[in-house]
Amino acid sequence: PTPPYLKWAESLHSLLDDQDGIHLFRTFLKQEDCADLLDFWFACSGFRKQENNEGNEKMLKLAKAIYKKYILDNNGIVSRQIKPATKSFIKDCVMKLHIDPAMFDQAQTEIQTMMEENTYPLFLKSDIYLEYT
């Protein structure tokens, strides 16, 4: 069978589908001061998954927490990678209390594209990954 670390090189999704892969990728991102990118990506997935079993109040609280931590500060690593239109859409949703499970989808896609084009290829060439393999 293919060892997991070879699978990680196939796609970002194969990497993010494996606990050890996530851990190593996060260690790399932390070195580069951009672990928030990964945390935000998982926060968006988690937010979407909670739609059926969580009350509205908790969803609102969570949406506000994600907005405050990753999007509100324009100098944050996540905020800088998200398009202004996407940010104002999310801000609108939070302000008008229009909480929708898909409200972070576009922002998540933008961060994912950035990771696919930038941090993920860098990770595959990094010492941290090469040493692990």
Partner: peptide
């Protein structure tokens, strides 16, 4: 009442794959 950070952390963990 959960703090915002706890809530976020819980949300992030819920999206991670389970140990194989």
């Amino acid at each position: 009442i959960d703090s915002e950070d706890d809530l976020l952390q819980e949300c992030i963990s819920s999206a991670m794959p389970k140990k194989k």
